[in-house]
Design a protein around this nucleic acid. Structure first.
Lengths: 233, 233
DNA sequence: TGTGACATATAAGTCTGACTTTTTGTTCGG
DNA sequence: CCGAACAAAAAGTCAGACTTATATGTCACA
């Protein structure tokens, strides 16, 4: 599940990163490289590399004679996929999930509008295929299959928009959708209305109807927001 | 101007990072840590730290027995402020600027709507102050002063939205606005219509009129998009 | 001729210890 | 009371030896 995995360096990062993003050290706390190296039983070289990466994420700041200072959350690179994953795994997961869902609600409608203008024939076909897959798995507790096609659907939309900034949010959306299915329990089958909206959206993109694509996506994301209000008020 | 600056490590990064994001090495190219260390005249330790940071940005991938492989642009963490700065300084600056402006056009209207709901009295005051500052510098080639207040205005909106993902885009917006003023020549005074829109927006937020705030912001960002079409068709 | 096991070379990964540089806090003299 | 010199502390840098994974080539065997 963890992306870093490989190498001694990655294992330390996978422990220290989540600790920091979980708020284990209040902002302003100072960590000493040597102490950390001892704690994780690694050499200073490895520890320095870890600190450098944390520094590039703006989670900490390293200064001579003072140590490694933990930065306030406001400074963090919250768009770093690694940071997003760490925070989603932590305690303030609900708040994080809400932030990301609001982000989706801003981005996806615009992305869908652009996709209606720019999508290739192949992408239109993929979209239809995904929507059909969602329909096929919408009943009988086939949640995993449904999720798979849902994620793929939104990825295609974001990619087809032709905007690289939108395209790179595919992982975020995947994380949010997966979170909804797995963590926040989802006993029942997905909302039939949502399924219909996806089918109609694929249709709108295929027919180059940007305005309709945007409107439909807005309905989808508003649904996601309402769902969140019900689960975590 | 460069954020990294400090330390030998930062200087190497400030050279190698821009090179990679500028596409100097085609995707799949392999770099050897030892060679890079020689080239920059630094120790392997320093070079390894640089590679680790580039790896965390998904610009490169380091694998045993093969070397440091440059990844395709599709993999890059394009939301990393450092990466954004590097790319804006490079050759594909126009494309980058367009991507970011489209991103703005998606985010800011939603952020403004939220700001109208959540802004504190203090934030409302700041907003009005910024808008007045923009008015005051809107004539007589006071571009620097205008830019300053424009950036501050949008930062307040994004922060006041209460969504941390939006708030963190303040730097991006600042970069885009600064780019428009400095790089892409802007001899004339700013569009009076835009100034008026900002004043009205501050008003709408103060009066808690979310719908109007969103609509006005949409007009502002659409103006920015059209401006871009004129400059770089 | 194809295939699988094995050997080898290569480049990253890791560790250690010594040394340098910057910064901060203290102390001492004015 | 204040400023300048000083000392200590922690990160930063370096060099060299060693380890580990792995891509690739080799060779025997089918």
């Amino acid at each position: 599940m963890s992306t870093t995995g490989r190498g001694l360096h990655g294992r330390v990062l996978d422990t220290l990163g989540p600790e920091i993003t979980a708020g284990a050290y209040p902002p302003g706390s100072v960590l000493r490289t040597d102490e950390l190296a001892q704690r994780f039983d690694v050499s200073r070289s490895v520890m320095r590399e870890v600190v450098r990466v944390l520094e590039s994420m703006h989670l900490v700041e390293s200064r001579r004679r003072v140590g490694v200072t933990v930065l306030p959350a406001r400074e963090w690179n919250v768009y770093d996929p690694q940071v997003i994953r760490w925070r989603l795994a932590g305690a303030d997961r609900p708040r994080q999930l809400r932030s990301l869902t609001v982000l989706r609600s801003a981005i996806e409608p615009v992305a869908a509008g652009l996709a209606a203008r720019n999508a290739t024939a192949e992408q239109c076909a993929e979209l239809t295929e995904c929507a059909l897959g969602m329909v096929a798995h919408s009943r009988g507790h086939r949640l995993e299959g449904y999720l798979f096609h849902d994620v793929a659907f939104h990825r295609v939309i974001l990619t087809a928009s032709g905007n690289e900034m939108f395209a790179r949010l595919g992982d975020v959306v995947a994380e949010v959708l997966a979170g909804r299915t797995h963590h926040d329990v989802m006993f029942e089958d997905p909302d039939p209305a949502a399924v219909t909206l996806h089918v109609q959206l694929a249709e709108a993109v295929r027919e180059r109807d940007a305005a309709r694509a945007e409107r439909l996506t807005r309905e989808i994301t508003e649904g996601a927001l309402q769902e969140l209000d019900v689960l975590a008020p």
